[in-house]
Design a protein around this nucleic acid. Structure first.
Lengths: 144, 144
DNA sequence: CGGGATCCAAGCCGATACTG
DNA sequence: CAGTATCGGCTTGGATCCCG
């Protein structure tokens, strides 16, 4: 789907449709692991680029830049450039970013709560367990 | 990260460290757009494979299967196979899945709340490049 | 120090075919 | 209908270099 579809005339119901697809797009944009981690760490305090890179760990220069631009574009992150040399660039959350941080925090809490549950489930899944809990044969025509 | 998940008498600090890296891994796993959409739609009601596919829209057979397996492996989604012909497979959220659904719901609410804010920010951000080419239907960018 | 651009490998994802 | 496997294109993402 082309995202460069700028239409000057807005049909009444197209507005809702557009909002919906926009919401879906935002949803897809933000549901990515680097974005979540950035939001989480910036929620704790304002960080410089390299600090953020160290805090997160395992993120490449490119990915971090890319996601920071995306978050900035969507108005979740504010980029503050200090005109010094060497340059000092700080990132902080906007009000919208703080709002999403609540969500991410919720997910962190959820992860802590269900960590054991998840780990157990993984082991169960990897093991070949005879999991056939349901074996109720209904009367189905066509089955020999 | 190591696959040294050997359960033994490990010191409390090591346990925390392991839990931390596991949490990070889970975090990365689940912060993906298809997983979120699946959780959201399954939160509303139990769905069959093809129903889920239709509801979400724009997801390929393969991606849906792949993500459902992942969610099942992590114990968020329960897969119920009815031994009929043709087969009928239903998916529903587990307790852990319901927990994560709260988070996803929160994100949906957040999206609705800040939709206008985000849209405005986007326009502000990209205004330098594509100003002139708006709303002119006769000027088709035919550059080869 | 922060960020853009480029090259190139790795994996993601869609399409298709086949099984039960 | 649901699932697995395979193949190929194309996006992703890492490494590197250079600029302000």
């Amino acid at each position: 789907m082309g995202t460069r579809n700028e239409i000057s005339e807005l049909p009444p119901e197209a507005d809702l449709a557009r909002a919906d697809s926009l919401a879906r797009e935002i949803f897809s944009d933000l549901a990515n692991k680097w974005a979540f981690l950035i939001i989480e760490f910036l929620g704790q305090r304002t960080l410089r680029f390299s600090e953020l890179r160290n805090e997160i760990g395992g993120v490449s220069h490119k990915m971090l830049t890319q996601n920071l631009r995306m978050l900035e574009r969507n108005g979740l992150v504010r980029r503050i450039v200090h005109p010094t040399v060497p340059p000092r660039v700080e990132y902080t959350l906007t009000e919208a970013g703080e709002g999403l941080r609540q969500v991410v925090d919720g997910m962190c809490g959820w992860t802590q709560r269900y960590l054991g549950h998840i780990e157990a489930s993984r082991n169960r899944f990897g093991d070949d367990a005879a999991i056939s809990a349901i074996a109720r044969s209904d009367d189905v025509p066509g089955l020999k």
